[in-house]
């Protein structure tokens, strides 16, 4: 019991403690102050560089939705027909997302296995595959899509490739985090009976991580449906393209815009609900 603290007089402990607390408070105070300065000055810069200012614009925020809604309400008889008319475009958008998720997940699976310590086929190349995932993840889909549109014309294929590449990068990172938690004993067992790399991965790793993989893939599908709608807006087909057309016509075509809004909203909500239900069944509630 020769604890030094016991030999220190109580008032000194107290003053040390208050000094420590004061220092801590000062640091967090400075942090908060810097944060507030950044937020306020950032807002002012953004406001100054924007075409319309925040204070002039915010009360007009509801004008456009109100215009769309009132026009859609006037022409509500058209709505079922319009919904039916834009259904094929919606199907295309969803198809782009599904195919891109399928391809991207498979590519990401390969990338993740090749970039996880203990599982990689070529351990020396792990940093290379990690950087590949990083770069694929960092390039926004829109850039790849626009470049591909230049090379292969409009249509769903450029959007699909763009989203698939981005998905591959994102999944490469997420899956390799999952892989790191996988038990290596089945892999060792399979190695001891002379299994090849593919067999070790297929039989030793995939069954362990499949529920997590599927859950992430479903989450990605939700994200990709949104991405696919956005890419349509810049010219890659699907419902986003139709939305932009109806928007450029402006007044008089807002019933079409409303129909597309409804379709997009319903699709996103339904896919979100179904996927979160499936994910809860796969890995239990509360995960990712």
């Amino acid at each position: 019991m020769t604890d030094t603290a016991l030999n220190t007089p109580l008032p000194q402990i107290k003053s040390d403690y208050t000094a420590l607390v004061r220092q801590r408070r000062m640091y967090s105070g400075i942090g908060v102050a810097i944060f507030i300065v950044l937020m306020v000055s950032g807002f002012m810069v953004a406001d100054a560089r924007n075409a319309g200012g925040f204070w002039d614009g915010w009360h007009q925020m509801l004008d456009f939705p109100a215009g769309v809604l009132s026009e859609a309400w006037e022409k509500r008889a058209n709505l079922p027909g319009l919904l039916w008319r834009y259904l094929p475009a919606l199907v295309e958008t969803v198809n782009i997302a599904i195919v891109a998720t399928l391809i991207g997940v498979l590519m990401g699976l390969g990338l993740s296995l090749l970039s996880t310590r203990g599982l990689a086929l070529w351990p020396g190349a792990i940093p290379l595959f990690r950087r590949i995932s990083d770069v694929l993840r960092a390039i926004p889909e829109i850039v790849i899509a626009l470049v591909l549109i230049f090379m292969m014309g409009g249509g769903p294929v450029p959007a699909m490739i763009a989203i698939a590449l981005h998905t591959a990068g994102a999944m490469g990172k997420l899956y390799s985090e999952v892989n790191e938690n996988a038990d290596l004993k089945p892999v060792e067992g399979l190695t001891s009976v002379g299994a090849g790399w593919m067999q070790r991965m297929m039989l030793g790793v995939i069954p362990q991580v499949a529920p997590n993989y599927l859950s992430y893939a479903l989450l990605r599908l939700e994200i990709n449906i949104r991405a696919s709608a956005i890419l349509g807006f810049v010219g890659a087909g699907g419902i986003g393209y139709e939305l932009r057309n109806s928007m450029t016509f402006g007044m008089g075509k807002f019933d079409e815009a409303a129909a597309i809004f409804i379709l997009l909203f319903l699709t996103i909500v339904i896919v979100d609900q179904v996927s979160s239900h499936l994910r809860n069944r796969l890995i239990g509630p509360g995960a990712h």
């Binding site: 560089r49 924007n50 319309g52 200012g53 925040f54 915010w58 956005i230 809004f261 997009l264």
Partner: peptide, 20 residues
């Protein structure tokens, strides 16, 4: 559920193009 795309369109009608 109202996607970022739709919010972007609605907001750019009110505030015009720009970072804000």
């Amino acid at each position: 559920g109202v996607d970022a795309l739709i919010w972007t369109i609605i907001l750019s009608r009110a505030f015009g193009p720009g970072p804000l």
